[in-house]
Each structure stands twice: as structure tokens, then as C-alpha cells.
């Protein structure tokens, strides 16, 4: 099983109502349906991904995240998930607000631009970092809003978003000791579990 799926599955209660924004090929939802009997829905715009989801029996809905989530009622889901997609939406800040409007809690994962390899790459080569967890060139990257863990946590604070849990990992979704000590330097990807209110 993919390590990231297991990490997220651990954060979800059995039978929860789950909305996965940018669900890709539906691996996470298929996994959650099987292991947690969730009532899950995924939003996706890639036609091949949608077909794959349909084939897997995942509830996939063709919808462009950048056109908003107004069609979902407030507090209509237990958990709204966005894995490695926040950095490619038009307005991550508004997205975060909307996610917490719809869901009681959210799980957000994204690549860390403050990862030491990115920093080193930039300093030594003077070029936009390309790494295992950030494989695109600057001109074709879907990642238009890259940030560091510190940036993200600052946004959460400004918006009054409560960070309930954070799990930092490398690009293979494994946690190593140094990461917990200096997450913004040694962590490549973070899993945030978020709630409304508080600091």
C-alpha cells in the first residue's frame, strides 16, 4: 500500500463523509471505501483520471476546483482532503477557507519549497528547483503557488485555521528523525490535519 494513503487513512473515522479535491485516479477514495467504509466523493478534471475512477467504483465528479466549491453546502462533510493540489489552485487561501466551510476538518498535503534540496539547488545553481517531489520545470509546472511549511503555517495563523496534527515526511512519505526537529528544512512533504478556529 502507498505510504501516503495509510497516513491519511489513519486520520479518518470509519463511515465518514469524505470529499477529495483533485482525487486523481481515485486511489485514496478506493482505499478509504474499502478500509473505512467512507461515503466518499472525489472532484477531478482530467478525463483519463475520471474514467479510471469510474472503473474503480469511486464516486468521481467532473468539476474544476478553480471555479469554486459553492455547490457544496456548509458542514456537509466530515473531512475534506486535498493531496498535493493546494499549490496548483488559483487561490490557495480562499480554497482553504472554503474547505473548512464544507468540512468539519481538512487534510492538506503539499510539497515543501523550503526543503533543503530546494534551497541548495537554488543557491548553487541559481535556477528554479527541480526535485523528486517537484519534478516540473518553471514554464510547465502546475505548481503556481509553491510555499514552505512555514509559509503555510503562517497562512493558517492569519486565517484562524487550527493545525490539529502535522506529519512531516520525505518524498517517499517516510518520516525520519531529523524531520521532526527541523521540519521546514528536512521535510519534503507534510500532511496537515486542520480545523476551524483557534490558533
Amino acid at each position: 500500500m502507498r505510504a501516503d494513503l495509510a497516513i491519511i487513512a489513519d486520520l479518518i473515522n470509519p463511515g465518514a463523509r469524505v470529499l477529495d479535491l483533485g482525487c486523481g485516479e481515485g486511489d485514496l477514495l478506493a482505499h478509504l471505501q474499502k478500509t473505512k467504509q467512507v461515503n466518499g466523493y472525489g472532484l477531478e478534471i482530467d478525463s483519463n483520471n475520471i474514467t479510471t475512477c469510474i472503473d474503480k467504483g469511486v464516486n468521481v465528479i467532473e468539476q474544476n476546483l478553480d471555479q469554486g466549491l459553492d455547490n457544496f453546502a456548509s458542514d456537509s462533510f466530515d473531512m475534506v482532503i486535498m493531496t498535493e493540489t493546494l499549490q496548483s489552485v488559483k487561490s490557495p487561501d480562499l480554497m482553504l477557507t472554503d474547505m473548512l466551510r464544507i468540512g468539519e476538518e481538512c487534510i492538506v498535503t503539499f510539497p515543501n519549497f523550503g526543503y533543503w534540496r530546494c534551497r541548495l539547488y537554488f543557491i548553487l545553481r541559481g535556477k528554479m528547483p527541480v526535485a523528486e517531489h517537484l519534478p516540473y520545470s518553471w514554464y510547465d509546472t502546475p505548481n503556481i503557488h509553491l510555499c514552505t511549511f512555514r509559509d503555510f503555517e503562517r497562512l493558517c495563523r492569519d486565517k484562524g485555521v487550527r493545525i490539529i496534527e502535522r506529519f512531516v515526511a520525505d518524498s517517499k512519505h517516510l518520516n525520519r528523525p531529523l524531520m521532526n526537529l527541523f521540519p521546514n528544512f528536512f521535510g519534503a512533504i507534510a500532511f496537515y490535519r486542520l480545523g476551524s478556529g483557534g490558533g
Partner: peptide, 8 residues
């Protein structure tokens, strides 16, 4: 809460 797939 129904199972649904949609495509445009």
C-alpha cells in the same frame, strides 16, 4: 449521500 459518477 448517493453513489454517483459524473462526466462533462
Amino acid at each position: 449521500g448517493k453513489n454517483v459518477a459524473s462526466a462533462v
